[in-house]
Design a protein around this nucleic acid. Structure first.
Length: 877
RNA sequence: GGGCAAUUAACUCAGCUGGGAGAGUGUCUUCUUGACGUGGAGAAAGUCAGCGGUUCGAGUCCGUUAUUGCCCACCA
C-alpha cells in the first residue's frame, strides 16, 4: 500500500480503533500462564465532557497499559463511569427549572426516571470521547457506579459496616449547602477568602448594669446563642463567669462560661456560643451541656426559633436586620473590616452553613490506622513519594465521614424504619416486614450515599466483589492507579481504607500522581476564563497521537503541565517526521527481499545505529517501568529525529543510491529492523500512527498492539564500531561548521585531506560517508609529516581536516579562528590539569574517573599542539 | 498558623543515585541534493535565585533568605 505524502491522522484513526476493538485486542483473558496487569480508570462523571485533564489522565494510563500488554502481561484497563450523585442532580434540577418544573413537585420516582433518561442520553458521551483518544480499555467489562454489580457491593459494604458498628447515625454539625439542600462531607467544602466584617456587639446582664462585648462574623446566628464564653485564665472577665446575659430580640438569658477554647488575645476575648451553627461551639456546648437551638431552615432562611421578626428571612437579610436592630437598641459597638475564609459548596459554590443535623457517618479512626500503615510499609507507593505526606496528614487528622446526602440520585441508604415499633432494619434486600413486630409498615431512609462512597469501592466492586469471581481473583489487587493530586482525599485515600477493610488487600500497589493541564500562560483551564482547549476539536485538527504526545512528552509525575500551541506544532511535526521517515524506508524496501541482519556483513553506520537503538531500548524500558513517561517520550523523540533520521537515514543514502546490490539489501534490512523497533517503542505513546505504518511493513504481525516490546540486548556487540562512526561524525561536523563559517556554498565540492585521530583504517573504509555528508569530491588520507599552506585546518576529536581553499583563505582571519579554538582547548586543559593536580581528587576519586581525565588531558594537549603547529605554519608564510 | 513544590538560555522545561551545563520553541545565517520546507545544515545565547556549609569536586546533598505557586487548618 502506498503511503500518503503527508501525515493525515483523520484518515485512519477511527478505522483503526474500530478494528482493534472489534478484534478484541483490548480484552484480556484470565490466563494463569500470564501475569496480570490491571488498571482501573478513574471513572469520569456521566455529566462530564472530555477535557484536557481527562486527556492527560487517559493518555498516561493507555501508555502504561499498552506497554505492559506488549511486554506480555494479561493487561486489563477497566473502564467505567460515575453516577456523580450531586453533580448530576444539580444538572437535572437545572434542566427541570428551564421547563418550569420543581424537583419536589415532580416527586422522587419521576425525578429518578428523568435521571436515568439523562444517563442514557449523555452517559455514553464521554465514553465515545475516550475512544477518540485511542484508549485501549476493555469495553466488555465496562462498569457504572450504579449498575447492578456496583450497587450490590455498595449495599453489602454498608450493611457490613453497620453491623460492625462502623456506620452510625447521629446529630452532628455538618456542612450544609442551602442551595443543593444536602449535607456535605468536609472534603466537599472549598474555602475562599472573602472580604467581610467583624461586628462588635454587646450583651447586658439582666439587671442591665454589666455589659460584655464580643465580636462575630455571623450576626444572624446570635439568635441561636446559648452561652457566652471567656478563657478561664482571663482576669478581665473572671467575675463575669457564672453570671448570665440576655440575648436581645429572643430575650433569652444565657450563661457566661469559661472554656479554654477561647483565646484571650483574639478579638475582645469573648465568644458567643451557638452550638447549632458552629462546629467549635458545638464542642463547647457538649462540654458545658448547653442547649442546641437551631435557628435556620434547610433552605437558608431563619425559622420559628429565630423569633417572628426574623422567621422566613433569608440568612443575609436576617444579618442586615440584626445589625440594624442592634444599632437601634445601642448594642452595636463597632464594625471592623475583616477578611476571612468562607466555606462554599464544591458543586454550586453557595456559602455552606454549619448546621446540626441528623446524618449517617462512618467511624474513621479504626479504618485509618491500617490505611496509614500500608503506605508506611511501602505496600502502597505514591509516585512521586512526596504525596505520601499529604496523605498521612489527612489520614492522621481524619474526622468521621458524613455519608448521607439529602438527594435522590444515588445509592439509597439500605435502612428501613418500622413505622409501628421504630425498629431500624439495615440489610441488603428490601425487607417485607419488621423482624421485631412483624409490621408491614416499613419506610426506607430517604437519603442517598455520598457519591464517593461507591467510588471508594471501585477497584474491587468493578471486578466482582463481594463475589469471588475469576476476574476478582486474577486481576485484583490492581497494579497502578493514575490520577490527579486534586482527588487524593476524595478518592485515593478512601479506596485504600475501604479495600483494606473489605477485601483485606490493598487496592493497588502504586499511585501515580499527575498534575493539571494549564494553558500557555500557566493558568488553569476553565470555562469562565474561556482558555480551555477542547480535546476533541484538537484531535480533529491535529490527531489523537499529537495530543497524546504533547501531553506525555515532558510530563513529570506530580507536576502540572503547560499546553501551548508551540509545543503542539512541534509534536505534530514529529508525527510528520515519523511518517516520512517510514515512507522513506518503505519506498526503498519495495521489491527487496529482507535479510536477517544478524547474519550479514554490516557497515559501520549499521552497527552504529543498532548500538544506539539498543541503548535507547534499555533506557526507555527502564523509564516506562518507573512510570517516567515524560523522560521516555523525550528520549524517543530525540533518538528518532536526531539519530535515526538526521544521521542514519543520511548514512544509508549513499548505499541505497549506490550500485552495490548486496550492500543495499543489508541497509534496507537494517532500516526495516530499526523502523520496526521504533514503531514498537513508540506505540504506547502514539498508537494510531504506529499501527498505521506498521500495517505497511513487510513481514508484520497481525497488530503492533500485541507485538513484543523491544528487548535490550545486554551483549552490546556493536560498541566498538559505533565509536568509529562517532569519530566520522566529528569530522563531518567540523567540515560543515567550516563551510558555514567561510560561506562556502553547499554545492561546492571540496577536496579534503584528513588525518584521523584514531582508527584510520576503519575511517578510510568508510570515507564514503564523509564524502556524501560533508560534500567532498575527493578525500585524501594523510600521515603526520604532510603540511599545507593555503588551507583551512580543522581540529576535532575525530582528527584533523585540511581544506585547500585557494584565495578564499584570509591568513589573519584563519589565525584568529585558530586562536579562538585554541583558547577553548586551553580552558579544557586547564580544567583537567587543575583536577589532576588536586591531591584530594587523585587520592579520593574513583580510579576510572582519573583515568578518563588523563585521557582527556592527553587528547586536548594533542589538539592544542596541532593548533599551535598550524598557527606557526601560517605565521611563517 | 502548618506543610509541599518551583526558581537553569528570550520563552517552556529536562537534568535519575554529586564528576566536563541540555532539549524544544523563538532569534540570526544558509540550503528548492530524489522521506519530510510540518524539512536540512550552521550560529549566538546561562554567575543553574542569593548567602553559607558538607565534599577532592555541588545545578545536584544540607542549612538559610527571597520571590512565586499550591495544599491543609479555620480564632469566633
Amino acid at each position: 500500500m502506498e503511503m500518503a505524502k503527508t501525515y493525515e491522522p483523520s484518515v485512519f484513526e477511527k478505522d483503526l480503533y474500530h478494528w482493534w476493538e472489534k478484534e478484541g485486542f483490548f480484552t484480556p483473558s484470565v490466563d494463569s500462564k500470564k501475569e496480570p496487569f490491571t488498571i482501573v480508570i478513574p471513572p469520569p462523571n456521566i455529566t462530564g465532557q472530555l477535557h484536557m485533564g481527562h486527556a492527560l489522565d487517559e493518555s498516561i494510563q493507555d501508555c502504561i497499559i499498552r506497554f505492559k500488554r506488549m511486554q506480555g502481561y494479561s493487561a486489563l484497563w477497566l473502564p467505567g463511569t460515575d453516577h456523580a450523585s450531586i453533580a448530576t442532580e444539580v444538572k437535572i434540577v437545572e434542566q427541570l427549572a428551564k421547563e418550569g418544573i420543581d424537583k419536589y413537585q415532580l416527586g422522587r420516582e419521576k425525578f429518578l426516571e428523568r435521571a436515568w433518561a439523562w444517563k442514557a442520553q449523555y452517559g455514553g458521551r464521554i465514553v465515545e470521547q475516550l475512544k477518540c483518544l485511542g484508549s485501549s480499555c476493555d469495553w466488555s467489562r465496562e462498569a457504572f457506579t450504579m449498575d447492578e454489580r456496583c450497587s450490590k457491593a455498595v449495599k453489602h459494604v454498608f450493611v457490613k459496616l453497620y453491623n460492625e458498628g462502623l456506620i452510625y447515625q447521629g446529630d452532628r454539625i455538618i456542612n450544609w449547602c442551602p442551595e443543593c439542600q444536602t449535607a456535605l462531607s468536609d472534603a466537599e467544602v472549598d474555602y475562599q477568602e472573602q472580604a467581610s466584617h467583624f461586628w462588635h456587639f454587646k450583651y447586658f446582664t439582666p439587671d442591665g448594669k454589666t455589659e460584655v462585648v464580643f465580636a462575630t462574623t455571623r450576626p444572624e446566628t446570635m439568635l441561636g446563642d446559648t452561652a457566652i464564653a471567656v478563657n478561664p485564665d482571663d482576669e478581665r472577665y473572671k467575675n463575669l463567669v457564672g453570671k448570665t446575659v440576655v440575648v436581645p430580640f429572643v430575650n433569652r438569658e444565657i450563661p457566661v462560661i469559661a472554656d479554654s477554647y477561647v483565646e484571650k488575645d483574639f478579638g475582645t476575648g469573648v465568644v458567643k456560643i451557638t452550638p447549632a451553627h458552629d462546629p467549635n461551639d458545638f464542642e463547647v456546648g457538649l462540654r458545658h451541656n448547653l442547649p442546641v437551638i437551631r435557628v435556620m431552615n434547610d433552605d437558608g432562611t431563619m425559622n420559628k426559633l429565630a423569633g417572628k421578626d426574623y422567621e422566613g428571612l433569608d440568612r443575609y437579610a436576617a444579618r442586615k436586620k440584626i445589625v440594624a436592630e442592634m444599632e437601634k437598641i445601642g448594642q452595636l459597638v463597632k464594625i471592623e473590616d475583616y477578611s476571612h475564609n468562607v466555606g462554599e459548596c464544591y458543586r454550586c459554590h453557595t456559602t455552606v452553613e454549619p448546621i446540626v443535623s441528623k446524618q449517617w457517618f462512618v467511624k474513621m479512626k479504626p479504618l485509618a490506622e491500617r490505611a496509614i500503615q500500608v503506605v508506611k510499609d511501602g505496600e502502597v507507593n505514591f509516585v512521586p513519594k512526596r504525596f505520601e505526606k499529604i496523605y498521612f496528614n489527612w489520614m492522621e487528622n481524619i474526622k468521621d465521614w458524613c455519608i448521607s446526602r439529602q438527594l435522590w440520585w444515588g445509592h439509597r441508604i439500605p435502612v428501613w424504619y418500622c413505622q409501628d415499633c421504630g425498629e431500624v432494619i439495615c440489610q441488603e434486600d428490601t425487607p417485607h416486614e419488621c423482624p421485631k413486630c412483624n409490621s408491614k409498615k416499613l419506610k426506607q431512609d430517604d437519603d442517598v450515599l455520598d457519591t464517593w462512597f461507591s467510588s471508594a469501592l471501585w477497584p474491587f466492586s468493578t471486578l466482582g466483589y463481594p463475589e469471588e469471581t475469576p476476574d476478582f481473583k486474577y486481576f485484583f489487587p490492581t497494579n497502578v492507579l493514575v490520577t490527579g493530586y486534586d482527588i487524593i482525599f476524595f478518592w485515593v485515600a478512601r479506596m485504600i481504607f475501604s479495600s483494606l477493610h473489605h477485601t483485606g488487600k490493598i487496592p493497588f500497589k502504586e499511585v501515580l500522581i499527575h498534575g493539571i493541564v494549564r494553558d500557555a500562560q500557566g493558568r488553569k483551564m476553565s470555562k469562565s476564563l474561556g482558555n480551555g482547549i477542547d480535546p476533541l476539536e484538537f484531535i480533529d485538527k491535529y490527531g489523537a497521537d499529537t495530543l497524546r504526545f504533547s501531553l506525555l512528552n515532558g510530563v513529570s509525575s506530580g507536576g502540572d503541565i503547560r499546553f501551548s500551541a508551540d509545543k503542539v506544532e512541534g509534536n505534530r511535526n514529529f508525527m510528520n517526521k515519523i511518517w516520512n521517515a517510514s515512507r522513506f524506508v518503505l519506498m526503498n524496501s519495495e521489491g527487496k527481499q529482507l535479510v536477517d541482519i544478524s547474519k550479514c556483513k554490516l557497515s559501520v553506520a549499521d552497527k552504529w545505529i543498532l548500538d544506539k537503538l539498543n541503548c535507547v531500548i534499555k533506557e526507555v524500558t527502564a523509564n516506562l517501568e518507573n512510570y517516567e513517561l515524560g523522560v521516555a517520550a523525550n528520549k524517543l523523540y530525540d533518538f528518532v529525529w536526531s539519530e535515526f533520521c538526521d544521521w542514519y537515514i543520511e548514512f544509508s543514502k549513499p548505499v541505497l543510491y549506490g550500485t552495490d546490490e548486496e550492500a543495499r539489501t543489508v541497509t534496507v534490512s537494517v532500516l526495516n529492523y530499526c523502523l520496526d523497533k521504533i514503531l514498537k517503542l513508540l506505540h504506547p505513546f502514539v498508537p494510531f500512527i504506529t499501527e498505521s505504518i506498521y500495517q505497511n511493513m513487510p513481514n508484520h504481525e497481525r497488530t503492533i498492539m500485541l507485538a513484543q516490546y523491544p528487548v535490550f540486548d545486554k551483549k552490546s556487540i556493536y560498541k566498538d564500531d559505533a565509536e568509529t562512526l562517532d569519530l566520522i561524525k566529528e569530522i563531518i561536523k567540523s567540515v560543515r561548521n567550516a563551510r558555514a563559517e567561510y560561506g562556502v556554498a553547499p554545492s561546492k565540492r571540496l577536496h579534503l585531506y584528513i588525518r584521523p585521530a584514531a582508527k584510520q583504517k576503519q575511517i578510510e573504509q568508510s570515507s564514503i560517508y564523509i564524502e556524501k555528508l560533508a560534500g567532498a569530491e575527493e578525500i585524501t588520507f594523510v600521515g603526520k609529516d604532510v603540511s599545507f599552506e593555503k588551507v583551512v585546518s580543522l581540529v576535532s576529536a575525530g582528527g584533523e581536516v585540511f581544506i585547500p581553499m585557494g584565495e578564499l583563505v584570509d591568513k589573519q582571519k584563519e589565525i584568529a579562528r585558530l586562536e579562538k579554538e585554541a583558547a577553548d582547548v586551553k580552558s579544557e586543559i586547564a580544567r583537567a590539569e587543575g583536577k589532576l593536580g588536586n591531591k584530594g581528587f587523585v587520592e579520593k576519586a574513583p580510579a576510572k574517573l582519573i583515568e578518563q581525565e588523563k585521557e582527556k588531558l592527553a587528547k586536548y594537549k594533542e589538539m592544542l599542539a596541532k593548533l599551535n603547529g598550524r598557527m606557526e605554519e601560517l605565521k611563517n608564510l
